[in-house]
Simulated scan of single mutants.
Amino acid sequence: MPEQKTKPTDVSVKAFLDAVPDERKRRDAYAILELMEKTTGYPPVMWGPSIVGFGSYHYKYDSGHEGDAPLAGFSPRKDALTLYVMPGGDEREKLLPKLGKHKASKACIYIKKLEDVDVSVLKELIVYCVNFMKAKYPD
């Protein structure tokens, strides 16, 4: 079984965010950092070189593959702010249309700038998805 690539590191979250070259994206990343830390109740930790994660869960698939992942997280990528807000039940799908301007995949939400979305809906999504993942993968 190959070793998991994305895992917690001792890299400073502040140093990582301070290095984001685009000022608006850096400012939005700090706002998301504060929002996710307050909403999840977990401190931020760098997962791999580019994901700021909050909390964690351990998964194990039927195939035998297992590992750890953050309950929620984000990364200020070049094209968009990538929010790792995992899928879970129908509530996520009900909240996404209320979020504002974004794109979504199964496990990620992509936003260009924080002002394009309703932060209160984003907070609801984070709370719902973290609770869903904690229930699905209890410690």
Rank of each mutant, 00 (worst) to 15 (best):
residue 45 V to R: 01
residue 79 D to A: 15
residue 32 I to E: 08
residue 69 A to N: 05
residue 103 K to R: 12
residue 32 I to D: 06
residue 47 W to K: 06
residue 48 G to Y: 00
residue 56 S to C: 01
residue 43 P to Q: 13
residue 66 E to N: 10
residue 60 K to F: 00
residue 58 H to E: 15
residue 29 A to P: 03
residue 75 S to H: 02
residue 28 D to C: 05
residue 38 K to I: 02
residue 68 D to P: 04
residue 93 E to P: 00
residue 75 S to E: 04
residue 63 S to N: 14
residue 40 T to N: 02
residue 107 A to P: 04
residue 32 I to A: 10
residue 95 L to V: 12
residue 61 Y to F: 15
residue 52 V to D: 00
residue 84 Y to S: 01
residue 80 A to V: 10
residue 65 H to Y: 09
residue 59 Y to F: 02
residue 73 G to I: 15
residue 79 D to K: 05
residue 91 E to G: 04
residue 105 S to P: 08
residue 71 L to E: 11
residue 101 K to L: 12
residue 94 K to M: 11
residue 85 V to A: 11
residue 89 G to L: 02
residue 101 K to R: 15
residue 107 A to E: 08
residue 75 S to L: 02
residue 31 A to K: 05
residue 36 M to D: 01
residue 98 K to F: 07
residue 90 D to I: 15
residue 74 F to D: 07
residue 34 E to N: 15
residue 104 A to P: 03
residue 93 E to D: 06
residue 31 A to F: 05
residue 46 M to I: 03
residue 79 D to F: 13
residue 91 E to Y: 08
residue 46 M to K: 04
residue 92 R to L: 05
residue 102 H to R: 06
residue 46 M to R: 01
residue 85 V to M: 09
residue 56 S to E: 14
residue 78 K to D: 10
residue 77 R to N: 07
residue 88 G to N: 14
residue 60 K to M: 11
residue 51 I to T: 13
residue 32 I to G: 09
residue 77 R to H: 03
residue 77 R to S: 11
residue 30 Y to H: 05
residue 37 E to A: 13
residue 68 D to L: 07
residue 36 M to H: 05
residue 82 T to N: 11
residue 71 L to Q: 12
residue 83 L to K: 10
residue 40 T to E: 00
residue 51 I to N: 09
residue 63 S to K: 12
residue 30 Y to F: 09
residue 41 G to W: 00
residue 63 S to C: 04
residue 55 G to M: 02
residue 55 G to A: 01
residue 40 T to S: 01
